[in-house]
């Protein structure tokens, strides 16, 4: 009896507030926009049979005919991919150095990596507006040391979006890679070096392959949220920065076309299933390798 209550309460909560809303998105993505409250039809009030018979894939067809949407999907995939590679390039050396740092520093270094994650995401993105703007700190600094004579335009471009994604998601990259490198047996590298491998070659042949699981985990942890990102492209990106999270938000709040917004969401989910499944498989493999 007690066990039943223990299971039933969170179960019912998630059914009501996660699964049912989720199906509503599916249903509404197949409805039509109408001028009413709620602004879509048909609804349950029209009867179940009527409801089913009127659902169609019109909105999905619409997504393929309007340039805006598929361009936004492609450009989100591109931005998320490039940002993930850049984050890896920034995060890997830091994780590597952390794993090589004296043992007594490591807990502190770990905390310093995690700490930004607890501070407001919005504030961390906001901090870059003042740095990247035309008369911001970066331009002041670069002009001060004489590298450039005219301020660079970085804010409101894709470059700023990349910087924003790297900055906010790099802890997710560092932690799994650090965890993989920390477990690595140092004698393997010493053996390789004793046998005449150069430092670089030993890294490339031994350290990097052994940290592969951490690299994959980190990449997915950056790629998946970056794909649906809304705050970073809205604050740092320009009018030419197309990302699907932003399109969905605008479709919903300015155009009030809920069926199309729902269809956009459904397609985004379908795209996300691929990296999520790959991530799960990678985690499982890593777990099996450990045992």
């Amino acid at each position: 009896m007690r066990r039943a209550v223990l299971i039933a309460v969170p179960y019912l909560w998630l059914l009501a507030l996660f699964l049912i809303p989720f199906f509503m998105v599916f249903k509404i993505s197949m409805s039509d926009a109408i001028l009413a409250i709620p602004p879509y039809g048909p609804t349950m009030k029209d009867g179940f049979r009527e409801l089913i018979s009127q659902l169609d894939f019109e909105n999905f067809v619409f997504l393929t005919t309007d340039d805006l949407y598929w361009k936004a999907y492609l450009s989100s995939l591109k931005i998320a991919f490039i940002a993930t590679v850049l984050t890896l390039m920034v995060g890997y050396p830091v994780a590597y150095a952390m794993a090589r740092a004296p043992e007594e520093w490591r807990p502190t270094l770990m905390m310093l990596v995690i700490l930004p994650f607890w501070t407001s995401f919005l504030i961390r993105v906001y901090a870059w507006i003042g740095i990247l703007s035309t008369n911001g700190f970066l331009n002041q600094f670069l002009m001060g040391i004489g590298v450039i004579s005219e301020p660079l335009t970085i804010l409101n471009t894709n470059t700023a979006v990349y910087i924003g994604i790297i900055y906010t998601y790099v802890p997710f990259m560092i932690l799994p890679i650090y965890a993989a490198l920390d477990r690595l047996d140092a004698s393997l590298i010493e053996a390789a070096e004793d046998l005449g491998c150069s430092r670089f070659k030993a890294f490339w042949l031994i350290t990097f392959p052994l940290s592969k699981n951490g690299v994959f985990a980190g990449c997915f942890l950056v790629f998946i949220p970056a794909l649906g990102e809304f705050v970073i492209p809205s604050l740092l990106g320009g009018s030419s920065t197309l990302m699907i999270g932003k399109v969905l938000f605008e479709e919903f709040s300015f155009n009030r076309d809920w069926p199309v917004a729902s269809a956009v969401a459904v397609v985004l989910l379908l795209i996300l299933i691929v990296p999520i499944v790959l991530f799960q498989m990678n985690q499982q493999r890593a777990q099996e390798a450990e045992q």
Partner: peptide, 8 residues
């Protein structure tokens, strides 16, 4: 993605 959770 937060946009989907919010919308649903």
């Amino acid at each position: 993605p937060e946009v989907i959770t919010g919308l649903s």
